[in-house]
């Protein structure tokens, strides 16, 4: 394996991952747009290799902030995790556009609302992964989505603990969604394990 830690990725590797992120996020935005019956634009995606503290800062800065998250595990030619994070503002936009309701806080949401958010996270993740698998010609199976509403810091430690023996860093692909002229941070973390990252880069000819 050429790369043993996310931080060993060079500019060309990052460029390739940014391209993948761009295609994936583009498809995710299309799905979101179909669900909301609204135009959804995306900003130019960024790929960053961040440590835990830096990732918290990049996402919102408050470790105790309550966020919603959907997590899907990838298996097959590629192993890793997909994590989609959203804040209350994003959740309310979705609820408002789809059902005409909004909530004052995550604690007010009932099981139905949680289930809706899990599915939206799942659809966004699946369209991302589908676009990506077509590009790299890999066979990836996705787990059933799992959702949590809890402190940002604790949710971000899930992938860090999962790969804690391999790396201290996370690869963080992000682009913002623009809905009705308003920008929402899109926190979509694609986290291949190190062996899979090498395989992706090899497949795309930069290994």
């Amino acid at each position: 394996m050429r790369i043993k830690d996310y931080s060993e990725m060079n500019l060309q590797d990052l460029d390739v991952m940014r391209e993948i992120g761009s295609i994936g996020t583009g498809h995710a935005a299309t799905s979101l747009s179909q669900m909301l019956q609204k135009e959804v634009r995306i900003t130019i995606p960024q790929v960053k290799i961040l440590g835990y503290d830096e990732a918290i800062e990049a996402i919102g800065g408050n470790i105790e902030e309550i966020v919603g998250a959907t997590l899907v595990k990838m298996d097959g030619d590629l192993n890793g995790l997909m994590l989609f994070l959203f804040n209350l503002e994003f959740a309310n936009t979705i609820f408002d556009k789809m059902m005409g309701i909004s909530y004052a806080g995550f604690e007010q949401m009932d099981a139905m609302a949680h289930s809706a958010l899990t599915e939206i996270g799942n659809i966004i993740i699946c369209s991302y992964v589908n676009a990506f698998t077509e590009l790299v010609d890999m066979n990836i199976s996705l787990s059933v989505p799992s959702a949590a509403v809890n402190m940002l810091g604790a949710i971000l430690t899930v992938p860090i603990a999962e790969y804690g023996y391999e790396t201290d860093k996370l690869m963080y692909c992000s682009a913002d969604f623009v809905i009705d002229g308003k920008t929402y941070n899109d926190w979509l973390l694609m986290l291949p394990d190190i062996a899979s990252l090498n395989r992706i880069l090899e497949k795309l000819g930069v290994g």
Partner: peptide
């Protein structure tokens, strides 16, 4: 020592 995510059909995930 919480288990933040439960993935059905994959009991080992998140047992850390």
């Amino acid at each position: 020592g919480a288990k933040m995510f439960e993935i059905s059909g994959n009991a080992n995930f998140g047992n850390i």
